[in-house]
Nucleic acid binder design. Sequence first.
DNA 1: ATCCATACCTAGTAACGCTAGGCATCGTAT
DNA 2: ATACGATGCCTAGCGTTACTAGGTATGGAT
Lengths: 107, 107
Amino acid sequence: MDRERLKGHLDLLLLAVLEDEPAHGYVVITRLRERSDGGFDLPEGTIYPALHRLERAGLLVSDWVEHAGRRRRAYALTAAGHRELAAERASWTRFARGVIAVTGATA
Amino acid sequence: MDRERLKGHLDLLLLAVLEDEPAHGYVVITRLRERSDGGFDLPEGTIYPALHRLERAGLLVSDWVEHAGRRRRAYALTAAGHRELAAERASWTRFARGVIAVTGATA
DNA sequence: ATCCATACCTAGTAACGCTAGGCATCGTAT
DNA sequence: ATACGATGCCTAGCGTTACTAGGTATGGAT
């Protein structure tokens, strides 16, 4: 999976992964890897700054949780986050259909 | 269409548009706009540097053509360009399936 | 004791597509 | 005649992004 492809799509992935149940950064990485069957195996240096960016943008809220002696920062979608996720999914669909129409590639 | 989404996918679009019949930059822009039903309406500042990059990479060859008093630079795929296009299409499919699997979005 | 998994963070980097400007020709409408 | 839009090319610099590479720390297993 060429990493340059990910640019502009990461927010959609993160919001989708956090949609149903909140999670902390480490689990976000795991979920992405599992749900994509290994396709998205993203480094921490990608995930943590992105989560911070989404929180600054008001799409996520975080709170610190103590668990088995380790501190975790759990993220959840705000109302704006849910709206943004819907918009991102629609934007993705337009984009993907465009690529398919132009290139004849399949999804 | 969020422009940031395009990053990493432009090469695929350009190679696909030039696959069957060579064209010059201006026509590439037109074809992208038409085939995507207006979704990809890309500025010259995106297209021309990208074509130069692909030529430097050995995926395209160009030659200057005189037409109705205007000079045009026509681009065509090299053998390496055709191979790269096939690889890009496969890469796109993996990527798209990953996004769909993670987000539940549709193409 | 050592190592790996867990769990967080950030400064700096490379690559990308885009903005904004430039130059030139042709056809058409004023 | 001339102004303007469409055609047709180019590039320096910009903003955003995901990543590299480094750091800190705890818990469990060997």
